[in-house]
């Protein structure tokens, strides 16, 4: 009985309060927020506006476009695999094992994030180049040369993209309840079994998120790639390199290539986000 009138009173009171709160967004926050959004969206809109829509099908069918796109997707995927194989254990080490110099190691992992990619490319040349510290040995001992090859592209992309994966996975590992691993141990699981059977499934969403970031970064990689692997169509010329080259000769071609890159990134990011990243 007493619940009815109180509900009748509280309902109309609550509704206007919510509306008032929505209207109270300070202008000092709203204006920069909108400007920020424009800054992010306007260039992409420009790309769409200036796209040569009538000649688009013909331009897309040009062999150079598909070759570059294929190479980009291929190398970005391989670089992501390399990052997963090496980066997940590295993230585990940082999140779960105490060892001296851990802070230094964590700082080193993040260096490629702030390093200009061109500098990364130069550094890679010094180490893996034909006269480099490791490169000379690889060449003489196994006949393997990395610079200016597709493998070199993968190496350059992995160098630049790995920190994204390591940071994402380490964060996921730290957020995951490590007591599940203790529970696994009490059931007779050693550290390796615990890692594969319990830890990995628990942080799978974090690994997926890290892999997507890593893949996107690898797909867009330019500086380190062109420095370390050069710009050979079909071998090391990925989409960003093709865009840059086209810009000097044929603006419309550059726009078309950029558009393709944009669509591929957005489609894959959106697809993965719905499936893995957003679920808790």
């Amino acid at each position: 009985m007493s619940a009815d009138p109180s509900a009748a009173v509280s309902a109309p009171v609550r509704a206007p309060r919510r509306r008032r709160r929505a209207g109270r967004v300070p202008v000092a926050l709203l204006v920069p927020a909108v400007l920020g959004l424009l800054l992010l969206v306007l260039p992409l809109a420009g790309l769409l506006v200036r796209a040569p829509w009538t000649t688009l099908p013909r331009r897309l069918a040009e062999p150079g476009v598909l070759t570059a796109l294929g190479l980009s997707v291929q190398t970005a995927t391989m670089a992501t695999v390399v990052c997963l194989v090496l980066g997940v254990p590295l993230a585990w080490l940082l999140a779960r094992v105490d060892f001296p110099g851990k802070r230094v190691v964590r700082a080193l992992v993040t260096v490629p994030l702030v390093l200009p990619p061109v500098v990364g490319g130069v550094a890679l040349l010094l180490v893996f180049g034909r006269k480099g510290i490791l490169g000379a040995w690889l060449d003489s001992a196994f006949g393997i040369t990395l610079p200016f090859t597709t493998a070199g592209v993968v190496l350059a992309e992995a160098f630049v993209a790995m920190p994204f994966l390591v940071i994402a996975v380490e964060g996921a590992l730290r957020a995951a309840d490590s007591r599940y691993e203790e529970a696994a141990a009490t059931l007779g699981a050693g550290r390796w079994t615990t890692f594969t059977r319990v830890t990995l499934p628990l942080v799978a969403p974090g690994i997926a998120a890290g892999a997507v970031l890593c893949w996107a970064r690898a797909l867009g990689e330019f500086g380190a790639t062109i420095t370390f692997a050069g710009n050979f169509p079909g071998r090391t010329q990925t989409m960003p390199l093709a865009v840059y080259l086209a810009l000097e000769t044929d603006l419309e071609a550059a726009i078309v290539l950029s558009l393709v890159l944009l669509v591929v990134s957005v489609v894959i990011l959106a697809g993965l986000r719905d499936r893995w990243i957003s679920s808790p």
Partner: peptide, 29 residues
């Protein structure tokens, strides 16, 4: 080491592995 003791533990909030079914949780050990 923990995994080599013949000790079973029921944890306070159970810590059942969320990615495994009840059956696979019990079969884990």
């Amino acid at each position: 080491p923990v995994e080599r003791r013949r000790v079973g533990v029921v944890f306070q909030d159970y810590l059942l592995f969320p990615h495994l079914s009840a059956l696979d949780n019990v079969a884990f050990g």
